[in-house]
Simulated assay, not measured.
Amino acid sequence: MSLTGTPLLIGTLVAVLLTAVLIAVSWERGGRLRVVLRGVGVLAALLSVSAAALVQVNRMTEAFTLESASQPVPPAGSSPDAAEPDVEADADNARKAKTGSQIRKVTVPGKVSKLDLVMYVYLPAAYRTGKQRFPVVQAQHGFAGTPRTWLKKLQVQSALDTEIAAGRMAPTVVLFPFQTPNPTTLDTECTNLVGGPQTETFLTVDVPAYVKSKFRVRTDRAGWGLIGYSAGAYCATSLALRHPTKYAAAASLSGLAEPGITVGDGLEKTEHHVVWRLQNLPQPPVALWVGWANDETTIRRDSERIARAARPPLTVTTAVLERGGHSHAVWRQMLGPAFDWLSSHLGRPLS
Rank of each mutant, 00 (worst) to 15 (best):
L154R: 03
V194A: 12
I299M: 07
K214M: 11
G130F: 00
R305T: 02
G225N: 07
T19Y: 03
Q198A: 13
V106Y: 02
V16M: 11
A166Y: 02
E62F: 14
R308A: 15
A240K: 05
V121P: 05
G167P: 01
P181W: 03
V156M: 04
L281K: 14
V174G: 01
W292M: 04
V42Q: 12
G110M: 04
Q140G: 06
Q138Y: 05
V21K: 06
L321Y: 07
T184Y: 08
S2Q: 11
G77W: 03
P313Y: 10
A52P: 02
A159Y: 04
V137P: 04
P208M: 14
T204K: 12
A307M: 10
E189A: 10
E88V: 00
G195Y: 03
G31W: 03
V320T: 12
W289S: 02
S303A: 15
A329K: 06
P124L: 07
L175S: 13
A170Q: 15
H328F: 11
G325W: 09
R221W: 09
R277Y: 05
T318A: 07
V207W: 09
T191H: 06
G30W: 02
T262M: 14
T107S: 09
G142Q: 09
P312Q: 11
R221V: 14
G110V: 13
P135V: 12
E88P: 00
G41N: 10
L253I: 08
V173A: 04
A76E: 15
G266E: 08
